Amino acid sequence: MSETLRNLAGLPAQPASLADSTLILIDCQNTYTTGTMELEGVQAALDEAAVLLDRARTAGVPVIHIQHTDGPGSLYDIEGESGAIVAQVAPRGDEPVVVKSYPNSFVETDLEQRLKALGSTNLVLAGFMTHMCVNSTARGAFNLGYAPTVVASATATRALPGVEGTVPAAALQAASLAALSDLFAVVVPGVAAVPD
């Protein structure tokens, strides 16, 4: 197996502890649970995200929810059912929701200002879709100097058309996570791999 750029650059191979991180749940919206945009393995990923969220809440770790919008009547209509955050991982109390319109959660949002106010440098990321908004946000975080950890079991994606035919969701999931772990993030297999 070849070396990752992370290893060659001397970057950490292990995740920071949850206690020293901020949990960011990306686009855990109803649109991904049914119909055109239903993701492969979405319910299992939501179950894992719920466990992660419960751990963060129990530990008093800051939680930020990200919600994508493309406006009224779209698949991501945050005023409608499709764009709503899944009840299983919905915000509670004063947990903030950052609404975005781009795959990278830092673009034209106040996410970075919120993280600076919290003094956060370590981020634990989960949500949807692995190849799109999770990938873009992890890369954006890395480029801004944050240390992201992506919890693989709490992410999911879907099959996509490719130049040589359909790319199965499992292949896209694996490739997206491998690309992130080459440099941009520590990728852990599941919630249990994130230390308290």
Rank of each mutant, 00 (worst) to 15 (best):
Q29G: 08
N30F: 01
Y32Q: 12
Y32R: 04
T33H: 03
G35E: 08
G35W: 01
T36H: 09
T36E: 13
E38Y: 01
E38W: 00
E38G: 08
L39E: 14
E40T: 14
G41H: 06
Q43L: 03
Q43W: 07
Q43A: 11
A44V: 06
A45L: 05
A45Y: 02
L46V: 13
L46Y: 04
L46F: 04
L46M: 10
D47C: 04
E48W: 00
A49I: 05
A49H: 04
A50G: 08
V51T: 15
L53K: 12
R57G: 09
T58S: 15
G60L: 07
P62K: 10
V63I: 14
V63L: 13
V63G: 15
H65C: 14
H65V: 12
Q67H: 10
T69E: 15
G71V: 06
L75S: 15
L75P: 14
Y76V: 10
Y76G: 11
Y76W: 15
D77M: 11
D77Y: 08
G80Y: 01
G80Q: 12
S82H: 09
S82I: 01
I85D: 13
I85C: 12
I85P: 02
I85Y: 02
V86A: 15
A87T: 14
A87P: 03
A87Q: 13
V89Y: 06
P91D: 09
R92W: 00
R92M: 02
G93E: 09
D94H: 05
D94N: 09
S101P: 00
S101D: 04
N104Y: 02
N104I: 03
T109W: 03
L111S: 12
L111E: 10
E112L: 00
L115I: 08
K116Y: 01
L118P: 08
S120F: 04
T121F: 04
V124K: 10
V124E: 09
V124H: 09
A126V: 02
G127Y: 03
H131L: 01
M132T: 15
C133V: 03
V134M: 08
V134S: 11
V134P: 02
S136R: 11
A141D: 09
F142M: 13
F142I: 09
G145A: 05
G145K: 05
V150T: 12
V150Q: 13
V150M: 11
V150S: 12
T155M: 08
T155R: 08
A156M: 08
T157I: 03
T157G: 09
T157H: 06
R158T: 04
P161T: 05
T166W: 00
T166V: 11
